[in-house]
């Protein structure tokens, strides 16, 4: 678990409005290779919107986002190239129900000609072994539990060999007994040095796994710090207030 000095992502003055509703009000931050950032905050404060701006599922209204040499906020950038390197895992897994587990994993690498079918098949087997679901390779998503589906969604994302993975509440839609198996996989990824931004309500997990925690409130980063300081010695009243409610 080591954070390098190599900057992957730079966000400068990011603003986002939906019509009249200004959701993000100027966010500036930097993500270095190997960082694991937990994003917490009350409902509706713009956590998801922030994450979705990073791979342009939402268009930023103001400000600039850079991923390596790509200016994500620039209309002329080939956003698909960015998305190949910036993976995303969703709250509701969103596996493709018309494909088997393995087809889900192989689709993008093969269709984007990043791997041959044989290579993608091999990689899928590796990833399935890793998430402990090799025996489900030919099952359809509808036959899997929520926890299993989310593990497959992570494997599908990993198949692209991304440099960053964005997690938007990966365990919120799961029954409590399945939360552990998904968090365990994210933990392993952290140990291997994968750069990740994780929106989560799992405070224990955030404290244990992240290298940095961010507290979002009303469209700004109210406070950010290393987890010990963040949880042990919160500065702002809002964070103190929030932590007292959720811990």
């Amino acid at each position: 678990m080591s954070v390098s000095n190599e900057v992957l992502l730079t966000v400068t003055g990011l603003e986002k409005s939906f019509g009249e509703n200004k959701v993000l009000k100027g966010i500036t931050t930097e993500v270095k290779k190997g960082e694991v950032i937990s994003i917490i905050g009350p409902s509706g404060c713009g956590k998801s919107t922030f994450l979705r701006c990073l791979n342009r599922l939402e268009e930023a209204t103001e400000g600039e986002i850079k991923f390596r040499d790509y200016t994500v906020t620039d209309k002329s950038v080939n956003i698909n190239e960015v998305r190949e390197k910036v993976g995303m895992v969703f709250q509701h897994f969103d596996l493709f129900p018309n494909m088997t587990v393995k087809q889900n994993i192989m689709l993008a690498p093969v269709q984007l000609k990043l791997m041959s079918v044989e290579e993608a098949d091999k990689r899928a087997n590796e990833l399935l072994t890793r998430v402990g679901l090799l025996d489900k390779a030919d099952s359809y998503p509808a036959m899997l539990s929520g926890g299993q589906q989310q593990r497959i969604a992570i494997a599908r994302c990993m198949a692209m060999n991304p440099e960053i993975i964005l997690f938007d509440e990966p365990t919120s839609a799961l029954d409590p007994e399945m939360v552990g198996e998904v968090l365990h996989i994210i933990e392993e990824l952290a140990e291997e040095g994968m750069t990740m931004l994780i929106v989560t309500h799992e405070m224990g997990f955030a404290r244990q796994v992240s290298t940095r925690c961010m507290f979002f409130n009303e469209g700004v980063i109210e406070e950010e710090n290393a987890p010990e300081e963040f949880f042990g010695n919160p500065k702002s009243n809002r964070l103190k207030d929030f932590l007292s409610k959720v811990l």
């Binding site: 791979n55 599922l57 698909n80 190239e81 960015v82 998305r83 190949e84 993976g87 995303m88 969703f90 509701h92 969103d94 596996l95 493709f96 689709l107 993008a108 269709q111 984007l112 969604a153 599908r156 994302c157 692209m160």
Partner: peptide, 11 residues
């Protein structure tokens, strides 16, 4: 979510 999942993979 289906479109977003696919697009987020770079498709």
């Amino acid at each position: 979510g289906q479109t977003e999942a696919a697009r987020s993979l770079g498709l």
